Lab assay of single mutants.
Amino acid sequence: TRVETATETAWISLVTALHLVLGLNAVLGLLLLRWQFPAHYRRLRHALW
């Protein structure tokens, strides 16, 4: 059971790390998009709101 718990903890930390990386990538991607295409982003925002 100790090995199972260790594997579980490893999986949880792995999934958490993946989520963090994906979240960071999403934020960075959005920031890059805003920086690269400000006009396009503004138009998109007007369409959404």
Rank of each mutant, 00 (worst) to 15 (best):
T1C: 06
T1I: 11
T1A: 11
T1R: 04
T1M: 14
T1L: 11
R2A: 12
R2P: 12
R2N: 15
R2F: 13
R2H: 12
V3H: 01
V3K: 02
V3L: 13
E4K: 06
E4M: 05
T5H: 06
T5N: 02
T5C: 06
A6G: 13
A6I: 07
A6N: 12
A6V: 08
A6E: 11
A6P: 04
A6R: 10
T7F: 07
T7L: 05
T7D: 15
T7K: 11
E8W: 13
E8K: 12
E8V: 10
T9H: 14
T9C: 06
T9Q: 07
T9F: 12
A10V: 13
A10M: 11
A10T: 13
A10W: 13
A10R: 13
W11I: 10
W11D: 08
W11P: 12
W11N: 08
W11C: 11
I12S: 14
I12H: 11
I12T: 13
I12C: 14
I12W: 15
I12M: 13
S13M: 02
S13V: 12
S13R: 14
S13A: 07
L14H: 04
L14M: 09
L14Q: 10
L14P: 12
V15C: 13
V15R: 15
V15N: 14
V15I: 11
V15P: 15
V15Q: 07
V15W: 09
T16A: 11
T16C: 14
A17H: 09
A17Q: 04
A17R: 08
L18G: 12
L18E: 02
L18W: 13
L18N: 02
L18P: 03
L18H: 00
L18D: 00
H19Q: 15
H19T: 15
H19V: 15
H19P: 15
L20I: 06
L20D: 00
L20G: 08
L20A: 11
V21D: 00
V21Y: 05
V21S: 00
V21I: 08
V21R: 00
V21F: 10
V21T: 00
L22Y: 10
L22R: 01
L22A: 02
G23L: 14
G23H: 02
G23Y: 07
G23R: 03
L24W: 01
L24R: 00
L24M: 10
L24S: 04
L24Y: 03
L24D: 03
N25S: 15
N25P: 07
N25D: 00
N25T: 15
N25M: 15
N25V: 15
A26R: 01
A26P: 07
A26S: 09
A26L: 10
A26F: 10
A26M: 11
A26T: 08
A26W: 00
V27A: 08
L28P: 01
L28R: 00
L28T: 07
L28N: 03
L28S: 04
L28C: 11
L28A: 12
L28D: 00
G29P: 02
G29A: 12
G29M: 11
G29H: 00
G29N: 00
G29L: 12
G29Q: 02
L30M: 08
L30W: 13
L31F: 09
L31Q: 03
L31D: 01
L31P: 00
L31N: 00
L32P: 01
L32A: 04
L32T: 03
L32D: 01
L33I: 09
L33K: 01
L33D: 00
L33Q: 03
L33P: 00
R34V: 13
R34S: 07
R34L: 14
R34F: 11
R34Q: 03
R34H: 02
W35Q: 11
W35P: 01
W35D: 04
W35G: 05
Q36D: 02
Q36K: 12
Q36V: 08
Q36P: 01
Q36L: 07
F37I: 04
F37E: 01
F37M: 03
F37G: 02
P38R: 04
P38N: 04
P38L: 05
P38G: 06
A39H: 10
A39Q: 12
A39P: 04
A39V: 10
A39L: 09
A39K: 06
H40L: 11
H40V: 11
H40N: 04
H40C: 12
H40W: 08
H40P: 04
H40R: 06
H40G: 10
Y41K: 01
Y41W: 14
Y41C: 10
Y41Q: 02
Y41H: 03
R42G: 08
R42C: 07
R42Q: 14
R42W: 10
R42T: 11
R42S: 10
R42N: 11
R43S: 06
R43G: 04
L44I: 07
L44G: 02
L44Y: 03
L44S: 01
R45C: 13
R45G: 05
R45N: 04
R45Y: 07
R45I: 13
R45L: 12
R45S: 08
R45M: 14
H46F: 07
H46I: 05
H46L: 08
A47H: 06
A47S: 08
A47G: 05
A47R: 07
A47L: 08
L48P: 01
L48Q: 01
W49M: 08
W49E: 02
W49D: 03
W49P: 02
W49F: 08
